[in-house]
């Protein structure tokens, strides 16, 4: 991952690969939403996925923890090929943290309960131990003082940081971010991106769907541009932004970087 200049990165050894897509196809009804997706994500790598809306980028990362089911091809997450086996899927999901566009915090639980729910019930961690970890993470996302509030009492930015902390509670091997700042008011975007940058610097493997190109330049090891269900271009950020190959990439970049 330090070899940022070669577009086709050196073949990863299997142990170093955390997520792999091999010829993945998916349809919504008749609509071919993912077309022959091939991608390898190594441990510790940060991938930023961008593209126009409807290009399939959210669907692609949602396939990784099987919130969406692909119909053809293979997706391997941490050595496990995704299939219909419910127990295996639950196991894969426990190693994959996810942050949603609309936060999806549990509104009937306090912030702390949102964080401790899965560790206590999934991993059987004692409640006080889980609570201690929860406070550590709330400290890390800089909102320990909100611990006993309900999500509805927090601002969007705070909610999203709680959601990141919640995803981190299970000590995931990879974090998926599905447009984490798209539902936020502009003044709150920075506080969330700061947390994500900090997370990236700490070495977390991240796959991020976002249009925040400043963030992408800062942390991405690989930029992936999708359009119409296909990966059009994949390159390290300096090449991707300065010297994109495809016309569609150029057009997209010119559209989002105008202002």
């Amino acid at each position: 991952m330090d070899d940022k200049n070669s577009e086709s990165r050196p073949p990863e050894s299997a142990a170093n690969v955390i997520v792999e897509f091999r010829h993945v196809h998916k349809w919504f009804g008749d609509f071919h939403v993912l077309r022959d997706i091939n991608m390898v994500v190594g441990r510790g790598e940060k991938i930023v996925v961008c593209g126009p809306s409807g290009s399939g980028k959210s669907t692609m990362i949602r396939c990784i923890n099987r919130l969406e089911v692909h119909q053809e091809g293979t997706i391997i997450v941490d050595g496990t090929a995704l299939a219909d086996d419910t127990r295996k899927i639950e196991e894969v999901r426990r190693g994959v943290g996810m942050v949603f566009q609309d936060f999806n915090l549990f509104p009937h639980l306090t912030v702390v309960e949102n964080l401790t729910m899965a560790p206590v019930y999934v991993h059987g961690i004692p409640e006080d131990e889980a609570e201690r970890q929860a406070f550590e993470l709330l400290e890390r996302v800089k909102i320990p003082e909100q611990a006993w509030k309900y999500p509805g009492q927090l601002s969007g930015g705070q909610q999203q940081r709680v959601a990141i902390a919640r995803a981190l509670m299970l000590k995931p091997k990879v974090m998926l971010f599905d447009e984490p700042t798209s539902a936020l008011d502009p003044e709150m975007i920075t506080e969330v991106l700061d947390v994500m940058v900090e997370l990236a610097e700490a070495g977390m493997t991240m796959i991020v769907v976002t249009h925040e190109m400043g963030f992408a330049r800062k942390v991405a090891d690989l930029m992936v541009f999708m359009d119409d269900g296909e990966i059009i271009e994949a390159a390290p950020p300096d090449i991707f932004f300065e010297n994109p190959k495809s016309d569609r990439t150029k057009l997209f970049l010119s559209q989002i970087l105008t202002h």
Partner: peptide, 18 residues
């Protein structure tokens, strides 16, 4: 209940009954 609640619970690895 919004679909996001189901997805967030799924993503955390909770079983159906949990």
């Amino acid at each position: 209940i919004p679909r996001g609640q189901y997805e967030a619970a799924d993503a955390a690895g909770l079983t159906y009954w949990e």
